[in-house]
């Protein structure tokens, strides 16, 4: 009886952090959806999660994305405002978009916006310097994930 109780307790101890982690992510999504302005930290975390990672912090997620070649190797801070150009760069590199001549030559954030617009990932008529809201970031990541899934 004691052995069974101890085993049950161990199972619960292992299961609780996993459940808490999931709810932490859900709370992150819920808060992000209501944010008027998203940060680079939000984008890095959301893209890392969508790529199957469970990053422990901003730097870990950022390093993972840089290693995967989908994040600009620039000194962005976690609290920096997320601009369309940065989000477009991550999306374009992740989806390996290459049908824009300018983007295929320069592969920079400016032309990533054009590539994303041409591919229907982002609206084509918006400025690269626009600040993205949390809901816009979520919509972008959902579209990118859907496109990546369809391309498999």
């Amino acid at each position: 009886m004691r052995f069974k109780s101890a085993a049950l307790l161990l199972v619960l101890l292992f299961a609780l952090p996993a459940a808490a982690q999931d709810m932490a992510n859900i709370n992150f999504y819920a808060n992000l959806g209501d944010q008027a302005v998203a940060t680079v930290g939000d984008a890095v975390k959301l893209f890392a999660l969508s790529m199957g990672q469970k990053p422990r912090d901003f730097n870990a997620a950022r390093q993972f994305l840089i290693k995967e070649g989908v994040f600009p190797d620039k000194p962005y801070a976690e609290s920096d405002t997320l601009r369309r150009r940065t989000a477009a760069f991550i999306a374009a590199r992740y989806l390996k978009l290459g049908d824009s001549i300018m983007y295929s030559i320069f592969k920079n954030e400016r032309y990533a916006v054009v590539a994303c617009g041409a591919n229907g990932i982002m609206p084509a008529d918006k400025s690269e310097w626009d600040a993205l809201s949390g809901a816009e970031l979520m919509e972008l990541v959902a579209r990118v994930a859907e496109r990546a899934e369809a391309g498999k």
């Binding site: 999931d22 999504y29 819920a30 999660l49 969508s50 199957g52 979520m138 990541v141 959902a142 994930a145």
Partner: peptide, 25 residues
């Protein structure tokens, strides 16, 4: 109801099926 990345939920609503896709509220 909310779903996260790479997640989904399927609801049966009076015998009709609603699939909630990723990052949806």
């Amino acid at each position: 109801v909310m779903t996260g990345v790479n997640s989904q939920a399927v609801l049966n609503i009076d015998d009709n099926l609603l699939t909630i896709k990723p990052l949806t509220t």
